[in-house]
Design a protein around this nucleic acid. Structure first.
Lengths: 166, 166
DNA sequence: GAATTAATACTCGGATATACACTGTCCGAGTTCATCGGG
DNA sequence: CCCGATGAACTCGGACAGTGTATATCCGAGTATTAATTC
């Protein structure tokens, strides 16, 4: 019950993309080098994000990635589900239907009480992530990060970003 | 990000143990047969529960398992953490400290904003499981389960349970 | 000098090996009960 | 008839293979740029 490192990478990359100037594109190589991540593997996560429509891709030279929707319309849950899958964290296999003293399943039967609680916890987890958007994260980072650090990042990025063609 | 089937098994077994008459012991073989589970593998989960003090073991003939604490003092979270481990569902590797434009870590530094949100979601998940006790589950099952089904289960168990020695 | 064309360099996308963890299984240590023998 | 010792059966506990998923990597398809060539 532990999320893969891809989730962490994807969230940080989305944070970078959200901070990009209007019309700028970041290639996968830049995103990878930014945090010293293996580029080919990171590309896998980016593909998943592209498949979910969270990022747009521009192929060819001067291409790269950019956010597919406004930052306030992308939640943490969107990113996590795109990378990790939409399956629930608990899988009920209905073992109460197995064994010598189990009654057969009926159409109108209620959900297993144990599964009900586990799903409730899963919903609570998802609810926190659903309420948190990339825009909210950006607003918080602007207050948290020191100005010189923001400047350094922008300077480094400025030389490697591509501009979208009109 | 999906819990193993051991969690499901452990929760169902704990539910059975909570419903046992006072002083009764259930061997691992009975718990396994109850839901058609592989006995040796289930024993692994029971060992984890015993290690956490959630169940007590009585060795030798007429031995078995019984709850280690009152049912209202055992939460779902206790069971899940005993089987799956207490580690958080999100692992922050501080990748913001890596790369060309990252500032070195300082002692007083705040937690990474992304990790903060993920931990918040994890806390919400745990909170639901912490509030839910085995006693609460039992109370609900008494109303949910049909009387004849309870009777069948008790009759089947009655012939295979062991009584604790004084 | 301008337009066209071909080559080039750079981008993403999917298909491919490897490592770790979960699943499933086995056998041994310890304890209690029953039985057998002796007093 | 009672006590003790011995054997056996049953329990849990830790050590041992098989399989599936996550990790890490590579090479190919596609496109805009760019340069050379021709009119």
């Amino acid at each position: 019950m532990v999320l893969g490192s891809q989730v962490e990478w994807a969230l940080h990359c989305m944070s970078i993309l959200a901070a990009l100037p209007e019309g700028a594109l970041a290639p996968a190589a830049v995103l990878a080098e930014m945090h010293d991540l293996p580029k080919p593997y990171l590309a896998k996560s980016l593909q998943a994000l592209a498949g979910a429509g969270l990022v747009e891709t521009v192929p060819g030279p001067r291409g790269g990635y950019r956010l597919g929707r406004p930052a306030d319309a992308i939640s943490f849950l969107d990113v996590v589900e795109a990378v990790e899958g939409k399956q629930r964290s608990f899988r009920c296999t209905e073992i109460r239907r197995q064994g010598p003293c189990a009654s057969p399943a009926r159409p109108g039967d209620a959900l297993c009480n144990i599964a009900h609680t586990m799903f409730e916890a899963d919903d609570a987890w998802r609810e926190v992530l659903r309420k948190r958007t990339l825009a909210g994260l950006q607003a918080e980072l602007e207050q948290t990060l020191s100005p010189e650090q923001r400047a350094r990042a922008e300077a480094w990025l400025g030389t490697r970003l591509n501009l979208a063609r009109p």
